[in-house]
Every structure is written in C-alpha cells, then in structure tokens.
Computed example of a mutant assay.
Amino acid sequence: MNIQETIISYAKKTIAEEAQAIAYLESLINDEFAAAVSAIYNSKGRVIITGIGKSAIIASKIVATMNSTGTPAVFMHAADAIHGDLGNILDDDIVICISKSGNTPEIKVLVPLIKNFKNTLIGITANRGSYLGQEADYVLEAYVEKEACPNNLAPTTSTTAQLVMGDAVAVCLLHLKGFSSHDFAKYHPGGALGKKLYLRVHDITSKNQKPQVSPETDIKQVIVEMTEKRLGVTAVVENQEIIGIITDGDLRRMLTTNTSFEGLKAKDIMSKNPKSISNDAMAVDALEMLEENGISQLLAQDNGAYTGVVHIHDLMREGII
C-alpha cells in the first residue's frame, strides 16, 4: 500500500468509527435528556457551559451555537472558574459541565461549588458512574467505546460525541422556542449567511441605475439608455407599469433580422411579460428566479410600478452566490 492509499484508508477508518459512535448516541436520548432540555427551556436564566482541555473547546462551540439560536449562553473555563470566574454564575442560571471521564481534578473541585450555589447542574460525560455523573442533576450520556486515535488517547470520537450532544440540546431548544429564520437573521447580520436572511430586492435596486424607455422610444435611444445605465437591459414602461423588457440578446437578434433600424421602436423588439419580482422580496428569492429561468436580470416592481433591476452580478457582489 502506497502513502496515498494509506492516507485514504486511515481517513475513512476515522470517519467510520466516529460515525458509528454518533449513531449510538441516538439510543442514549431518553426521558432524562428531555427533562434536562425542559429545565433549560423553563429557566429564567442563562446556560453556563464549562469544561477542561478539549472539552472546554467543545463547550465554547456549544455556547456559540446556543447564542446564535436564541438561548443565551456563557462559556466558563473550569480552571478559571475556581479562580474567580464563578462570579459569572447567577441565581437562575443552569450549568452544563462537559467531561469525558467525569473525574478530572478540576471537575471534582468545581462541581461541589456549583452545587453549593444551588444551580441546576447538567453533566455531559461518557461515564455515568463518574463523579460528575453521580453529582449532576441530569446526565446527558455521551458514551464512546474508544477514540479514533489508534492509541485510544487523543480526544477525537469523544469530543465529536460531546459536540453532537450539545447540538441536539440546542436544536431542541430552537424548536421549543419557535426560533425562525427571521430570528436567526437578527443574530447573523454579517457575511453571506446574514445577507441571505435579511437582504431584500430593494436593497439592491436602490444602488443600481434604473434604465427605462417607453414603447415608442426609437432603437437608437434604447441603445443609448442601455449603454449609459450599464446593466445590459432596460425596462419598457408605460404609465409606470412594466410592459416589456429589452436585453442585449434582443438587440443582437434585431441585428440579425433587420437591415435597417429606421422606424424601429422599443415595442417592436421588446419581450412581453418579462419576469419580475416584488421590490420587498428577499434577494435570495431573486437568485432562485434567475437560476430557474436561466436569465441574468430581473425587473423589480412595487404594486405594479417599475422600481429597478436586479442583476446576477449584484447578487455575486453581495455574496449571495
């Protein structure tokens, strides 16, 4: 076996072992899991998530997921907690402690302190019989038979299991809260993801020029309008309503079928009943229309009145594509 085959073999083996461990977690979802999620849902406080080592990194990721899906959460490193960060915990907060073994020295110091505060404690551990498993009010068992590491030492499968269990909690809470894509957009205003959730057609048309001609506009002026507005298209508008569209393609077809432009009007070469979209529609819906119809531009309208053009390049520039 050469090095390339060896790499592929080990990679597939790692993925298969972790997938098997994750599949097993489904059998560990029980009434206690439901009770733990219900306790968080009914709590008036936040979720404080703590851990040590690699489990701390997983805790930080779960905190980020909860915050972005409507459950206020705070990360607290287990080592820092016993040196002042316990002040993060408020009366109504619920604490989730993550530890594969459930028996690390930091966890054994931290757990009694949390219990003294009388906060609800949820343990995520692979070892229900551990100190954490015995002391927690609720245990979310993230059992794994072994790590993907060939020495069964480096946290691999176990941290993946912890993360999946945290995701399961977060998604359950999302459903219970009725957290919608509009709510999600409020917490993700930046980047391409945010734009897909909040950017609307009028946000794009307001930045573009607004090419338009009347049905009686002569072809020379149509070409001038399209050239000046630089969108490769113009709307044909009558009484503020869209009655047609002229694209670069329409102009090229005109050149192949007419020896003279004399007397030609916009109405003679326009395409009737062009695709249009509401000015208040989501930009991602405009992209879907463009892709479905194999076109590059859409005309926007507001209650039938022409408002501008959405070009596929606009969506690319905004990061929607």
Rank of each mutant, 00 (worst) to 15 (best):
A35D: 10
E216S: 04
A23Y: 01
A266M: 09
A185M: 02
H188T: 08
I40P: 15
D302P: 09
S180L: 01
T71C: 08
Y41E: 13
D91T: 08
D280E: 10
E106P: 15
E135G: 03
Y187D: 05
N239M: 04
L174Q: 15
E26Y: 01
T234I: 06
K146I: 01
A64E: 13
V74K: 15
S181F: 03
A21W: 01
I3A: 12
R128T: 03
T6F: 01
A79E: 10
H182K: 14
N67G: 10
G191W: 01
Y10P: 10
M1E: 13
L287M: 09
A64C: 13
A148S: 10
R200F: 01
T159G: 06
A56T: 12
D250F: 01
Q221M: 08
V236P: 13
Q20C: 06
I57N: 14
E288N: 09
G166L: 04
D218N: 12
V37N: 12
P274Y: 00
T256R: 09
T247W: 02
D137L: 07
G70D: 07
A39W: 03
G102F: 02
H313C: 04
Q209D: 03
E262S: 11
I8G: 09
A35R: 15
T217V: 07
A136K: 11
F261M: 06
I245G: 06
K108A: 08
V95T: 11
E262Q: 09
N239Q: 10
V171K: 15
D167W: 00
S158G: 08
R252D: 05
T227R: 15
S260M: 09
K196P: 08
D248Q: 11
A23N: 14
T156N: 08
N273K: 13
D302L: 11
D248H: 02
N293V: 07
N67W: 00
D248S: 10
N208A: 06
S9N: 15
K100Q: 07
L199K: 13
F261N: 15
Y10C: 05
M289W: 03
I15G: 12
N293Y: 03
V144Q: 05
L287N: 07
A286Q: 14
A56Y: 05
G84A: 05
H83A: 03
I245K: 09
V171L: 15
V171H: 08
N279G: 02
S43V: 10
Q221Y: 00
H202A: 02
P150D: 05
A11S: 12
K207Q: 10
I107H: 03
